[in-house]
């Protein structure tokens, strides 16, 4: 639970953060690094591979940490990354 919330929310047992699926269109990336730097959960990091444009595109470290804030989708100048909600089976 984040430190700024002093009281435990009443529906904390029922509400779960959504599961996200991150899609990276590697060859459109120009390697500005905004998605890596400004991700609130540090889900992305720079990869070792080089794409068609000669830069290092981001790669996913841990997709389960993503909370679907979609900041990376909004801040990407090259339309190279987007997130969708993962539809999961019952019980997850």
């Amino acid at each position: 639970m984040p430190e700024r919330i002093k009281h435990k929310p009443l529906d904390i047992d029922k509400v779960k953060p959504p599961k996200a699926e991150i899609h990276i269109i590697t060859d459109q990336c120009k390697g500005c690094g905004y998605c890596i730097q400004f991700c609130p959960k540090q889900v992305l990091e720079e990869s070792k591979e080089i794409n068609a444009r000669g830069v290092h595109p981001p790669k996913i470290v841990d997709e389960s940490k993503c909370i679907l804030c979609s900041f990376c989708t909004a801040v990407c100048p090259d339309f190279a990354i987007y997130t969708t909600e993962k539809k999961c089976a019952e019980g997850c």
């Binding site: 459109q28 120009k30 390697g31 500005c32 690094g33 909004a74 990407c76 100048p77 090259d78 339309f79």
Partner: peptide, 17 residues
């Protein structure tokens, strides 16, 4: 596409928004 703007240019973000 892809657009001509430099890596890190804010114009892509304006278009995105």
């Amino acid at each position: 596409m892809p657009h001509i703007w430099c890596p890190g240019c804010g114009n892509g973000i304006v278009l995105n928004c």
